[in-house]
Write a protein that binds this DNA or RNA. Structure first.
Length: 209
DNA sequence: ATTATGATGCTCT
DNA sequence: GAGCATCATAATC
């Protein structure tokens, strides 16, 4: 069964841990892939400087201001996509970044898209890897994840972990004033959770003086 | 094990 | 122009 609109129409820090263990279903042109979520991060557009929506609505983040339960997909670092689920009431732009998971079915399809993965655990171990494995790009931005069935992308109820298995800590790669929030959630000891990396400010090579 | 760096282009100021 | 919610690879301990 798909998760309901009401599931996502709650504070983002409540929805995020509740997404662990849920099933993400991606119907690709070549067939379905399912994934069990093991790692997520919450971004609160109202109060959180780490959120893409903190400075207001733009063309890129428009989906975050729409109804809950829809996808927000963005392009990053010139080559990757990341998948989020919009949470909270329409107009309050919060979202959960889906960071990692365990591929349950359609593993050959995922492996074809991730030729550099050295094990099944690496197929979706990180937000860009997850998006690559599941063939997710900006054409899915704004799509409804509560439809189920043959929809291109949906979130189903799945198999949540026992509450004592849920861990939380600071978010990966988030610096500045948003770094303090312990809004990364993962399943303890799960081999598909990505390694934590602290934010490192980096500047591209400048042109010669 | 950790730390560094190139790739690559869009978005916002 | 500066920075980016990353990945893969290489260098070094």
């Amino acid at each position: 069964m798909p998760l309901t609109r009401d599931f996502f129409d709650r504070p983002v820090v409540d929805v995020a841990p509740d997404l662990l263990g849920r099933t993400l279903l991606r119907n690709t042109p070549d067939g379905p892939i399912t994934l069990r979520l093991t790692e997520v991060e919450a971004y609160d557009g109202e109060t959180d400087p780490g959120s893409h929506a903190y400075r207001g609505r733009t063309a890129r983040n428009a989906a975050m201001f729409g109804p809950p339960g829809h996808a927000y997909v963005y392009f990053i670092y010139g080559m990757w996509f990341s998948l989020n689920v919009v949470c909270g009431p329409e107009g309050k732009a919060s979202a959960v970044l889906l960071r990692a998971g365990e591929i349950l079915t359609g593993t050959p399809l995922a492996a074809d898209r991730r030729p550099k993965a050295r094990s099944a655990n690496e197929l979706a171990k990180g937000p860009a890897r997850l998006a690559t494995a599941l063939d997710i790009d900006r054409t899915l931005d704004g799509t409804d994840l509560c439809t189920g069935g043959d929809a291109p992308l949906s979130l189903l109820d799945g198999d949540p972990p026992a509450p004592e298995r849920v861990r939380n800590g600071p978010r990966t790669g988030v610096g500045g004033d948003g770094a303090d929030h312990p809004w990364r959630y993962w399943i303890a000891d799960d081999p598909t959770v990505s390694p934590y990396r602290r934010h490192v400010p980096r500047r591209r090579a400048t042109t010669a003086p």
